[in-house]
Design a protein around this nucleic acid. Structure first.
Lengths: 227, 227
DNA sequence: ACAAAAGTGTTCCAGCTACACCCATGT
DNA sequence: ACATGGGTGTAGCTGGAACACTTTTGT
């Protein structure tokens, strides 16, 4: 335990998304202490006086998922006077995309259960966490169409159809398979590993990898991802 | 002066944009009291314990511009440990678009000068305000292409070419006049008032008005503005 | 008459949509 | 053999880019 103080008025909450079983999932925890014992909430915590807010978010994320070096972006600060009972706490929300299989759920301090939920299973949440989650969802839908971040939810190599289902699930649409394929390949940041799927009861697909470096170069040249 | 307390660890800073003389401008103020006397800064202030953060932003905006009911959106929280000297202050930045001619600059309390600057005239700023401003600029460039908010910087009625110059200035590009015109008109949220410009030494242009209601309806139907 | 900006018309072409079709692999 | 998804080809349409052209107003 660090010996540094916390800032009483500022907290962090993280929306942690993953993709499994063809569905978008979000990580929730049940509080083991404090006013909200037993209730579900977004994983969160306070900011320490000697750490940056981004560092606090990384710490929170690691605490609940064991993961570091993850896509993590600030979402929005929520600061209604009455959002937190009795005290004034402004929360800064973050959102994060993780690869489902890499996460080993381990309830951290002050939490006795951590669990993935699909969007139609979300239980009642404490405070304004439902609002935060909804805000995150709409941001996710937006950003996923304008930046190639969907890859962060998939294994490092993946068949194209899996990428397509991911987008279909998040955006709630259908894409034409041949056209989706061509469109993405033409963007030139998907590297064909030439490795094929194993043990599938149909023709094995080639596995692709997202080439971040190639994407960065394209972006410098004015390319913008748009789906 | 309100009798409510302020939250010591949380401040608000506003990036207030306007458009004049074919250029994007931003409002800066010079501090009259405190550690940064005489230095230029983004207009800001503290959050009171009995007001929402959005309310604090609206209050700050009104203090410096006299304006209410303005486009104002949260940008991002900045919370590096060392961003503020000696104390720990996390700031929540907002950005706002106003109509230049509606603003009467009146230095408020604790500020002895308020002034518009174009982007290539920005003086040194206190703390991390330069970083905040740059973040705001890139957000502005992004949002302006994906939501029709450019109108907030223009008079309520405007000729199309003025809209085009606005976009050209913000995005630093050139558009083809006929094509720009057709593209925007086809979107069906510009209402032709049929009123013409006066006293211009060339054919008078029709003045248009942004029809928010029409735009909202289009959005519901899945339309997305893209420039 | 001329300058300057408003506004219209039209050609050409890239890129997207829609859909038909063939390929590979496990049961 | 057939079901399932992988992957290619292509005809047709749409919308945007480029640019020529006409119109209106003030000096």
């Amino acid at each position: 335990m660090s010996n540094s103080e916390i800032i009483k008025n500022v907290s962090i909450d993280c929306i942690i998304y993953s993709f499994n079983d063809s569905k978008l999932q979000v990580l929730l925890v049940r509080h083991a202490i404090g006013k909200s014992v037993g209730k579900w909430a977004l994983p969160g915590g306070y900011v320490k006086s000697d750490e940056d807010i981004d560092t606090a978010a990384v710490r929170t994320l690691k605490l609940h998922t064991g993961l570091e070096d993850i896509y993590l972006e600030q979402l929005k600060a929520f600061g209604a006077v009455d959002r937190f009972p009795n005290e004034r706490v402004i929360t800064i929300s973050y959102f994060s995309l993780v690869r489902y299989k890499y996460v080993v759920l381990k309830p951290g301090e002050s939490v006795y259960e951590a669990k993935w939920f699909t969007m139609d299973e979300i239980p009642p949440l404490i405070f304004d966490h439902k609002k935060i989650l909804e805000f995150g969802n709409s941001r996710l839908r937006h950003i996923v169409r304008h930046e190639p971040i969907g890859f962060r939810l998939l294994p490092e190599v993946f068949p194209l159809l899996q990428l397509q289902s991911l987008y279909e699930a998040i955006l709630n649409t259908k894409f034409d398979k041949p056209n989706f394929r061509r469109k993405l390949l033409k963007m030139n940041f998907l590297y064909d590993t030439k490795v094929k799927q194993k043990n599938v009861s149909h023709r094995a697909a080639n596995l692709f990898r997202f080439d971040l470096e190639a994407y960065e170069k394209l972006k410098e040249k004015g390319f913008t991802f748009d789906l």
